[in-house]
Design a protein around this nucleic acid. Structure first.
Lengths: 155, 155
DNA sequence: CCGAACGTTGACGTTCGCGTTAACGTTGCT
DNA sequence: AGCAACGTTAACGCGAACGTCAACGTTCGG
């Protein structure tokens, strides 16, 4: 008995779901929506998820929960990354330079767009943060004043 | 002719929708969901939105689009703020100190929770940002190398 | 006083992101 | 060969967050 079966670091849907804290339904749904390239299957049709797939799922979770993007948005971004990986793969396959440079340019642009989008969000979040911090400071001040001088009306 | 009608800085739903870039349906929906206190009405029943209402709507938009909160979440937060304003209003109405201090404590806690939530998100966004920046740097490097020495295969 | 523009309340429709169930096939162990 | 555990597709269901009529009232300028 070597590794018994297709136990090559590949997980089937149940395990994959547990590891990612997603449901099986969600995994199938993401696949259906094109967020995952249809994973490899066992002979019987059982899905097999690679570590790459799991990482991808984690990315999706982050983009969704963290940034509140729709699955459609996320698909776009991931597709962009797909191109990125394709480029890396082709990197030394031939040498038709200009074409690759163009592709890189495209991906660079998409990445830049994502980055500026992120920066925008972070900036706004920062002003929100400041407002919240300000408030807390006020509460603290008020509470302190009370604790030290119970019967103070105005000032 | 002074200001012709109820044109006191109050807008009716059409204008309010335009200014906030929301739809009339959305405004009514938010009201229905308790995110807006039912706005003042004209005699005929037409809704009138004050500048305060508009600010509130902007807040809602930010919380929704920026942080991806559900309307239910947002309602909670805004209700907390409502308490905040009530406190300010009651501030010098009587002097039953301890009770107010308790209320402030509650609001302070909610604010703290929001703040830590924000911080968490910002931290994660920051690591995402770094990853993106890293990639762009790589692209730039690759493109530069190409521009300067077109026929370079490996290194 | 009339009509166009604007508003009101239902009520049903739609999209997204899954949950749930049904009916059935696969795998693995004994 | 049998059977429990696990998987598959298909289909319907659901709550959120509105969109979209329909039928009717209001405002206001001429």
């Amino acid at each position: 008995m070597t590794t018994t079966k297709a136990d090559d670091g590949y997980l089937q849907i149940g395990e994959a779901a547990e590891r990612t804290s997603l449901t099986q339904r969600t995994l199938r749904y993401y696949e259906e929506k094109g967020l995952l390239n249809t994973p490899t299957r066992m002979d019987g049709g059982f899905r097999l998820y690679s570590s790459v797939d799991l990482e991808r799922l984690e990315r999706i979770k982050e983009l969704k929960e963290l940034l509140g993007f729709s699955l459609a948005d996320i698909k776009e971004m991931l597709d962009a990354e797909e191109v990125r990986l394709q480029i890396r793969a082709e990197w030394r396959k031939d040498a038709a330079g200009a074409e690759k440079a163009a592709k890189i340019g495209v991906v660079r642009e998409m990445t830049l767009k994502q980055l500026s989008l992120l920066d925008e969000k972070m900036a706004k979040m920062n002003t929100m943060r400041e407002q919240l911090a300000e408030r807390i400071a006020k509460y603290d001040a008020a509470l302190l004043q009370w604790a030290e001088q119970p019967a103070l009306a105005l000032s």
